[in-house]
């Protein structure tokens, strides 16, 4: 009894610490961005041109780049992940299921730099050949690599939900005479919508936070792309590029603004998805 109380306290403390950490990061970011507000530099940061030596520090193209890249990867990865999860859980023979899951588990542990590095030598030249336009470093290239990166994360989380739902519903539905495809479509997927939502939120977090894929593959041109074959720069890549070269000038502060915007994007998308989730609740 007493030990249960302690476990509860410990868990509570863990939750408090992690929430407090996230909140502190937000406070520090705001503190670091504050000079921009007071010096009136905010207008120059929230604009569309990044030409620091000419006094233009706009990071809005990077905001657009981050959103396009991560949402694009999410749109591509989610249906794939649903397909893989359903296949593994319902359709695949036992041996294939084990092999599939092992591969997915393994994929989650591949460092992003490997994806980036291999893509520079493999995917980028291919993209250059296939489309007779652009340099191969593009939104589309980074999106393909990023899809591959977040796919296993979404599959793992979604498959866990699917397995639970499947355990409770399968026998009943088999008795009712559902075929396996219609069982997936009419019972399994509708019942695991919330699990999918959690998986998608996690996948989005990985996509928007990833630095190396976009830094190595997206081309980093600070502009709004006019097609998927154009080069883009994400907020994370922008931070990496500026930190690597600069240290003290005025435009160094745009890095903190980028960080704050990333943070806010994550919060907003999370809230939006959660709202969507509660409207989905049975």
């Amino acid at each position: 009894m007493a030990s249960e109380k302690w476990i509860r306290r410990l868990l509570c403390a863990a939750a408090m610490v992690s929430t407090a950490a996230a909140f502190c990061i937000l406070l520090v970011l705001i503190h670091l961005v504050l000079p921009l507000f007071t010096s009136g530099g905010l207008g120059t940061v929230l604009s569309w041109q990044w030409l620091p030596f000419q006094g233009q520090f706009g990071i809005l193209p990077m905001v657009v780049g981050s959103l396009l890249l991560s949402l694009g990867a999410l749109v591509a990865a989610t249906p794939l992940a649903v397909g893989v999860s359903c296949f593994v859980q319902v359709l695949a023979p036992d041996k294939v299921r084990g092999a599939c899951l092992a591969v997915v588990h393994y994929m989650t542990s591949i460092p992003t730099v490997i994806y980036g590095f291999v893509s520079v030598f493999l995917l980028v030249p291919l993209m250059r050949q296939w489309f007779d336009r652009g340099t191969g470093f593009s939104l589309l290239t980074a999106m393909i690599a990023l899809t591959l990166l977040i796919l296993p994360t979404i599959v793992l989380v979604f498959h866990a939900t699917l397995r639970e739902v499947d355990r409770t519903a399968r026998a009943t539905c088999a008795a009712l005479g559902f075929s396996r495809p219609s069982y997936i479509r009419r019972v399994l997927l509708p019942l695991s919508r919330r699990g999918l939502l959690a998986a998608v939120i996690l996948g989005f977090g990985r996509a928007v936070g990833d630095t190396l894929i976009s830094l190595m593959l997206a081309g980093n041109a600070p502009m709004i792309p006019s097609s998927a074959l154009d080069s883009i720069r994400t907020l994370t890549a922008h931070i990496a590029l500026v930190v690597a070269t600069d240290s003290q000038s005025t435009f160094y502060h745009s890095v903190f603004a980028s960080g704050l915007i990333l943070f806010l994007i994550m919060i907003l998308i999370n809230l939006a998805l959660r709202r969507l989730g509660s409207s989905l609740a049975p």
């Binding site: 030596f53 340099t135 081309g219 980093n220 041109a221 080069s231």
Partner: peptide, 13 residues
């Protein structure tokens, strides 16, 4: 000191 075209790929090292 003329700016490089905006669509140029920017490399990190």
């Amino acid at each position: 000191k003329e700016a490089i075209i905006g669509s140029a790929n920017i490399i990190q090292s």
